[in-house]
Design a protein around this nucleic acid. Sequence first.
DNA 1: CGGTTGTCGATTGTCAACAGTTTAGGATCG
DNA 2: CGATCCTAAACTGTTGACAATCGACAACCG
Lengths: 228, 228
Amino acid sequence: MTIDPESALRIRRTESLTSIIRRELERMIARGEFKAGERLNENALAAKLGVSRGPIREACRGLEQSGLVDVVVNRGVFIREVSSRQAAELYELRAVLYGLAGRLLAPIVTEAQIRTLSGYLDQMDAAIAADDLNAFYPGNLRFHETIVEFCGNGRLADECAAIHREMHLFRRRALDMPGRMAISNAEHRSIVARLAAHDAEGAAAELEAHVLTSRVALFGPVGAYPDN
Amino acid sequence: MTIDPESALRIRRTESLTSIIRRELERMIARGEFKAGERLNENALAAKLGVSRGPIREACRGLEQSGLVDVVVNRGVFIREVSSRQAAELYELRAVLYGLAGRLLAPIVTEAQIRTLSGYLDQMDAAIAADDLNAFYPGNLRFHETIVEFCGNGRLADECAAIHREMHLFRRRALDMPGRMAISNAEHRSIVARLAAHDAEGAAAELEAHVLTSRVALFGPVGAYPDN
DNA sequence: CGGTTGTCGATTGTCAACAGTTTAGGATCG
DNA sequence: CGATCCTAAACTGTTGACAATCGACAACCG
């Protein structure tokens, strides 16, 4: 692989190899380029990315802390396998966090923000009309991301982003999507309506229920967890 | 210097230097042995702990991801300074997470668990009677930790522990304690009562309000944040 | 034939050295 | 006297090498 030496060096001044590699690995994990439980070979990665093992190892320690990989002493780092139980637990967290986002956003939301969110709703409706899951999914993602961004609690937004990255590790995640697009977007419209009405508790309840709908459909009642 | 070779070797087989160092640094940070904003000198730390810089750097990458330090390229790692705004944001997260814990725990809580929690209440009352903040604080901590442990959502417990570690970085945290011990423990009793009655929504509301009381006292209304 | 032991290759854990950047302090000039 | 520039020390970023460990396979023994 040939790299423009200037750009490579220019990047290095403001960013460490470790952070570049970490982002790259996160991207690869998000795109599912590794199998669950697969081992990351440090030598192979180092050779592939053209660096030494030091930055690779440092990047992996970051990934470990964010829950994307498991590190076993003397054996290596493995792409984390998220069990159904852990996914169910994550959905519960996500539900209350989105609920909080709605409660915070409703009192302060602006007309422009409502228009932005409504734009996403229309895009998703178009994807539904075209029966295009590949268009619906990123729209859905951006809709939720935007709400937590607007809510004013930056830490909440970070936490939601981290949970979302982690959810990519759960392979069966697509199950809740196929036939639910229309229902899902109806719930989205309801959420935006509550936000526009500055109804904090209503928006919180709608958002929480919206997430829990998927959780219950996939794993059963809240507080009960699948075995594996 | 002569080192007992057996003990040194035995330790290293099951745990890497990196993880040992990371735990040690976490402990030092929790005990406030570093000033906020202070730089961690890699060479000095390596010399002090008797290792090379590699494990030190790896440990710091983990701490960065868990929000305990900031890493600036070519300048080093610094003990994170948590602003009032960030602390206020954290309190809001903590409130909904504890609320979730209460909601999950109420339906499934056992008699024995109620007795355990009640025991902590009594210990805290004793600390209040003796006006002993140093006894109250760990009891308070254990009370909240126990609730999230019992609730059955392990990921929620991890998240709460991480947030708690992070809160140690906020220096003014003791402010909400001095005169509030009695009020705080009365709220604790109310929480346990709701749990014992298997009142999920009541327990959730009590727990959330309990955390938000401190937040509001320190920083003002929920959703409004201090400047610094 | 089943189980144990020993050895080898592959891989991780750790270290010491090198390269590039930042910072502090003094010399220089206005 | 103060500001600026320059130099050197200190420090971080990265690398390659060495030591220790793990997994697999073969030899050995009961």
